[in-house]
């Protein structure tokens, strides 16, 4: 517990120090155009929480971004677990799916953006798709590794206790892969958030990425910095929420503690 207090203390100290350095740097003549005053950025964020920037206030933008991540990510998680399992647990599944997996994996999610726009236009569907495809391969990789690394002796133990072959997957393989699947879901969420920012920066009329790109278009450094901080804070929140969920669901695992 005191370890945690110490950590919080140092976090406060170092982040305050960073803000102070930032403040004094922004006061220098040569930095004026590059670095806005942190107080202005803070004011902008507070004002944005109440009155709208563009069409929505900050909460509205965050909600838009989160809803995009939610749709793409949920789809990717479900498909990733199903397809990854099929690829890892059945030989035929592996033979069918793996070639496509190997072909698609080295293509970064962002490289899909132009094709997604050609396919789905510039509305929500193309953003869902980009987030989906970027997250899918990450989750699939982890599900595949997790399912493959199931302890063969545990399977033997389950058989000897009378589990039938068709019960093995759901009663032994999948639960034993949960920690690894979870780490995939975690990394995937971070990637989904980053991809969302990219997608919004390239084409959108709202969202956290839009705030940044609008700041650039209107040469408003304060808004750019505010947008970046917003993205960081929400990202941090997502990561923490995921860790909390893991600790709840994987209590049996050392990693979960």
């Amino acid at each position: 517990m005191s370890d945690r207090k110490e950590k919080t203390f140092w976090a406060v100290v170092s982040l305050s120090l960073l803000t102070i350095v930032w403040f004094f740097a922004s006061q220098m003549e040569s930095m004026k155009t590059l670095l806005p005053n942190p107080v202005d950025v803070f004011k902008f964020l507070v004002a944005g929480a109440i009155s709208p920037i563009g069409q929505h206030n900050i909460w509205g933008h965050i909600l838009w971004s989160l809803s995009r991540v939610f749709v793409g990510y949920t789809l990717a998680a479900v498909c990733g677990i199903v397809i990854g399992s099929a690829m890892a647990w059945t030989k035929v599944g592996e033979a069918i799916i793996k070639p496509f997996y190997l072909l698609l994996r080295p293509i970064p999610s962002i490289a899909w953006i132009p094709l997604a726009i050609l396919w789905f236009g510039i509305d929500e569907k193309s953003k869902y798709f980009i987030i989906f495809i970027g997250t899918l391969l990450i989750i699939m990789t982890n599900v595949y590794d997790g399912v493959r690394s199931v302890d063969k002796n545990l399977l033997g133990a389950a058989r000897m206790l009378g589990a039938k072959e068709n019960q093995l997957f759901f009663k032994v393989v999948l639960p034993s892969a949960v920690p690894q699947i979870f780490s995939g879901l975690q990394v995937g969420l971070g990637a989904a958030w980053a991809t969302m920012v990219a997608a919004e920066m390239i084409r959108s009329s709202e969202g956290a990425g839009w705030i940044i790109i609008m700041g650039q278009n209107s040469v408003n450094m304060v808004q750019i910095y505010a947008g970046i901080i917003l993205i960081g804070v929400v990202g941090l929140f997502l990561v923490t929420a995921m860790r909390f969920l893991e600790a709840k669901l994987c209590a049996w695992n050392i990693r979960g503690k």
Partner: peptide
Amino acid sequence: DHFVRPVFDFLRTIPGIAWIPI
């Protein structure tokens, strides 16, 4: 560790793409 880690933990949640305008 004390000084840099908190700053780093925050910065790492910001995707590289977001820095483009800056």
